[in-house]
């Protein structure tokens, strides 16, 4: 697969390591009420869609960026790749 790195352009997926669902960006507050339940859901409950999936890739053999890649799990078509940092910052803004 080729991943369209937002800074470096098309890069071979071999340069990356894969982590999983981009919902890992939404880490619960460990000091909040009910944190135990929230962390259980955060860590263990994932969707497994046949279709569009947002997922985290680390450019380990490259510039060390974490990316949020939007990939179709059926066709492997990649429709978007963003810096995870930008995505995370935008989410914090919403909160």
């Amino acid at each position: 697969m080729l991943i369209p790195h937002p800074i470096l352009g098309l890069r071979d997926a071999q340069e990356f390591t894969y982590l999983g669902d981009a919902s890992l960006l939404d880490r619960p507050d460990g000091m909040a009420e009910g944190a135990s339940e929230a962390f259980h859901d955060y860590l263990y409950l994932r969707d497994n869609p046949a279709g569009e999936h947002r997922e985290l890739w680390f450019h380990e053999q490259g510039d060390r960026s974490w990316l949020v890649v939007t990939r179709n799990t059926l066709t492997h078509e990649i429709t978007k790749a963003e810096l995870a940092r930008d995505v995370a910052l935008a989410r914090r803004g919403v909160k």
Partner: peptide
């Protein structure tokens, strides 16, 4: 050494980009 560095970058970029 490798996995911990990757984890630290995850925390920095994905959890606390602020």
């Amino acid at each position: 050494a490798g996995p911990v560095y990757r984890h630290m970058e995850f925390v920095r970029q994905c959890l606390r980009p602020d």
